[in-house]
């Protein structure tokens, strides 16, 4: 059985809230750093599921409003695209 308390925030990389809070408490209070330590926002959804929740956690910890926090970057191609579709036009 899985742990009843497991509270997965980033479903792409299966990262739980406790893990995120641990690194915020260690001083990593921006999304860019948490992304690089935990891979949150690096999966196929690029943070659509976890970004807002993580920014709220950072806000709670630092006292800064969410609007003042750096939200991190969403990279092209935004939605995953099959490699052969990108390559075709060039052939």
């Amino acid at each position: 059985m899985t742990d009843k308390k497991a509270n997965v925030i980033c479903r792409c990389e299966e990262i739980e809230i406790d893990e995120i809070r641990k690194w915020i408490d260690a001083g990593y209070t921006n999304f860019e750093e948490l992304k690089r330590i935990l891979r949150v926002g690096m999966g196929p959804c690029q943070g659509r599921g976890c970004r807002d929740i993580i920014l709220r956690e950072i806000s709670k910890s630092t006292g800064k409003p969410v609007a003042e926090l750096l939200p991190g970057v969403i990279r092209p191609p935004v939605k995953p695209v099959k490699a052969k579709l990108l390559a075709e036009d060039n052939e």
Binding site: G43, P44, P77, V81, A83, K84
Partner: peptide, 11 residues
Amino acid sequence: ALSGIRVVRQW
């Protein structure tokens, strides 16, 4: 073999 793999991010 990777032709069907999806590209997630570029930077």
